[in-house]
Nucleic acid binder design. Structure first.
Lengths: 335, 335
DNA sequence: TACATTCATCGAACCGGTTCGAGGAAGAAG
DNA sequence: CTTCTTCCTCGAACCGGTTCGATGAATGTA
């Protein structure tokens, strides 16, 4: 039914292999022949069959994207990771196989064992991620987004949460703040092993201690109305705190309404600094000074490194662990 | 490198074809042989190569998911369509190739021509969608999410916006409202051909006219602070209106804060009814009575019909256009 | 005992590409 | 006019599965 390379060969009056070489350019082809082949390809509308090509070359030009949608997670944020991966992959000639199964380990084994993909990107990697053993056993290389406990042999990309915390503390300390509240992601994120919560929190505490500041750490909530209740309780419990650091997407999205409702003015009554993805802040038009990370950078770098490793496992060199530098954008919510 | 069916055959002391039949069950295999084969498969960890199988069967067990991310769209909502498609596909044994390219037509041609997919789901189909010609020319079947102008030969799934509008108008009319504001999606959605905006708006106007109501239609905005400005302007311009219907995700998400800021109480001063996806409302804990649609139903039904058609193009019968019935959930924001 | 069935398995062909080695034609060198 | 290169093209093998027809063994029937 579909047009095969044989059809093209017949129409151009050459052999299959000649057509193949004309397409790949791996051997010289006379101008006259090339022209006939090009014409045949164009009029017949030939496109090489992916399965056959994969079989012959052991290259599928497909990258598996393994996502983990934790229930209770702030789902909208996920897309900010998926799209850049997809776009970057396509730029480099790869398609994306989106894998969303609950049993991520089995799914990873499936797509690698069947050879459906040339490599995989693991999104939302947690501290002790069960997928990593399977990945290490796989023939295809992988790139991680998120820092696990053990990174041996793996290419890892994550945001620099420690540096983000230090930047924010420095900023507030410079403005004269001495008592600061830190709202982290919800407890269950920590329990699940999302170490980025600790990395931010610990770095903030440590930096604060060095300056002799009072830092009050709290776990945030992920849903209304709990978010509002918890923020109100925290602010009531720490009336002397002059600054609020929020590392919690759901909370920061709800914060303007919560503060407005309790009559707290920013930055007059309270300085607020947040930490979120650039696009997230833009989508919700958040008015806060923030350390903005670029998850698109994450996906992009992960895919680039992955493709490098697919192309030449040796040449790509030793595995890397790379942190994306954060940037503080001042929107005037501190003073 | 990887384990092939030949390795299994050797270890079990049988031919390749016997192994194949043992796996597929398409011919009877003696208990003893089957046992040896199963053992070999298990210890060697064999999984059939996807490319080779695709080549032999002309079935890839992959469905292409073609998304269109319009700039300025409320992106978070997109995921609500993607996940159900992916989950349903996997349930039926299919994987998902996620295609996000800007040039959707070329991308569609690419994945169908190369035979990477057995069928495609087109998301966010607009009134005059350029992808449809390519789809009709493709060998593989497709299912649409979103109603285009011409549906001939296509399986189409969409929410029932007309019925939603009628339900809401009936509800408000029953409560005694006689002057009602309708806020539609932003103008650019209409310009782009998102006919669902018209379908809701027109149905609301028609139903309103039948009851002799005053219906004031407006286009909404997609970003703050324009959303707030526009809502305030509209409410100021129609002081006699007693009810507000919002068919606009970005606006409804921002509405609680906007109304709180201007001191408008719901439902005392104003009845509010909205229209959105179930999960969207849950994620933002929206407090409004709403006609809730289930986009997961859309994706699910689209995939099921697509798989049916892949399995047997004839048996699947004539193309269908199916609307998902809406449901009105009363949250007490009307009176 | 001979013959027809049924059962289990095998070999070969095929799917549609890629790639290697070989070989004919044309041009260069002796 | 040979002989050696270089250029271009071809045929065959291969990638790893599936599927058809054939065949030998086991079982049933006359």
């Amino acid at each position: 039914m579909a047009v095969t390379i044989m059809d093209v060969a017949r129409r151009a009056g050459v052999s299959r292999s000649t057509v193949s070489y004309a397409i790949s350019g791996k051997r010289t082809i006379s101008a006259a022949t090339r022209e006939r082949i090009d014409e045949a390809i164009a009029t017949l509308g030939f496109t090489a069959n992916a399965g056959a090509r994969a079989l012959a070359t052991s290259q599928t030009m497909v990258i598996g994207l393994l996502t983990q949608f934790h229930q209770d997670e702030f789902a909208p944020a996920m897309l900010q990771y998926v799209l850049p991966v997809s776009d970057t992959a396509r730029e480099l000639g790869y398609d994306i196989l989106l894998v969303t199964e609950t049993d991520a380990t089995a799914a990873l084994r499936r797509v690698t064992r069947t050879g459906m993909v040339d490599g995989v990107v693991l999104l939302d990697v947690v501290h002790e991620d069960p997928r990593l053993d399977t990945l290490r056993a796989a023939e295809q290389p992988g790139a991680l987004v998120g820092l696990p406990k053990r990174t041996e042999g793996l290419d890892v990309f994550d945001l620099d949460f420690g540096e983000s915390a230090r930047m924010i503390i420095d900023h507030l300390y410079g403005l004269g703040h001495r008592e600061i509240i830190v709202v982290s992601p919800p407890m269950h994120v920590f329990e699940r092993g999302g170490a980025y919560g600790w990395r931010f929190r610990d770095a903030a505490l440590e930096r604060g201690a060095r300056y002799g500041l009072q830092i009050h750490p709290y776990f945030g909530e992920s849903r209304q109305p709990q978010i509002g209740q918890s923020i109100n309780a925290i602010l009531d419990a720490r009336p002397a705190a002059t600054a609020l650091i929020v590392h919690n997407d759901a909370t920061i999205a709800a914060l303007p309404a919560i503060l407005a409702a309790r009559g707290t003015r920013v930055p007059t009554d309270l300085s607020v600094v947040s930490l979120y993805a650039k696009d997230f802040g833009r989508a919700f038009s958040l008015p806060y000074t923030a350390v903005e990370s670029s998850p698109d950078q994450l996906g992009q770098q992960a895919v680039r490194q992955l493709v490098r490793r697919i192309a030449d496992p040796e040449l790509a060199g030793a595995p890397v662990t790379r942190f994306i530098a954060p940037e503080l954008t001042n929107r005037g919510s501190t003073r």
